[in-house]
Design a binder for these strands. Sequence first.
DNA 1: ATGTCCGATGATATCGGA
Length: 259
Amino acid sequence: MRIATWNINSINRRLEHVTAWLERAQPDVLCLQETKCATAAFPEMIFNGLGYESVALGAGAWNGVAIVSRVGLTDVRDNLTDQPEWEGKVEPRAIAATCAGVRVWSLYIPNGRTPDHDHYHYKLKWLQALSRTAAAELVDHESLMLLGDFNVAPTDDDVYDIAAFEGSTHVTEQERAGLKLIEAAGLTEIEPRPLKYDRAFTFWDYRQLAFPKNRGMRIDLVYATPPLAGRVTDAYADREARKGKSASDHAPVVVDLAD
DNA sequence: ATGTCCGATGATATCGGA
C-alpha cells in the first residue's frame, strides 16, 4: 500500500500536475493540502475518473485539505477536537478518513508568519491540539498516520542553512516541542530518503532560484504508530514533482507499506 | 533551465499570505 502527502498550492491551478503524478506514482491514498477550494467545489469527478474516491474540506481562497483514495474511504471526520480558531473561525486544516484499515489524517499546520506574531501562538496551540486529538484517536485506531505540511523543520539539518533562519519560524524550539508532543502521544516520524542530494527536502520557495540551488526545507512530514511504522518498506520525497512549469512549491512525500 | 505564485478585488494593478 502506497500513501502520499502533497501540498499542491491550489487544486485548480495544479489539476494536471496532480493527475499526471497519480498516474506516474500510483499511490493508493494521497493527502492534499492548500487546495484553496471550497468543499463543494473540489473536483471529485476528476479523481473518480482515475479510480479514486475523495473527501475535501475547504473554504475558498485559503487553506483547504483533502484525501483521495482508491482503497476505500470511510469514517470521515473534519477538524481536530477543540481546534484553535484564527480570527474567530475554525479553518479547514484537518480531515481524516479510514482507508484500507489505516486511519489517515491530512493536515495543514498554520505557518506562524513570525515568532512575534499572533499566528505563531496559533500555530503552537494548533500543534498541541493535534497531539491531543492524535492521542484520542489512538484509542480506536492502532494504525494511525498523520501526514501533511507541518510547517516545522524537525532538526537544523532539515533546512538548507540554519544560519539563514535566525529569527524565523519553522525552526524554533517551541515549534519542535510541538512535534515532540506528537511523538509523546505514541507516533514516530517516518523519515523519507532523498532521490537526489543528501537531504529529502519537500519545499523550495518560488523565489530566488531556491529549487535549482537546492535551498530547500523538509517540512512535509509523516507520523505513524508502531504497527504502521513496522510495515514501512520505503519512503521518499519526490523532488521530480517540483520541476517544470507551474509546479507546486512543495514536493510529495511517499510511504510504502507492506500488506 | 527554473531569477515567485495564487486568489481576490466594484480588478484591469495591487495586495495579503506563503
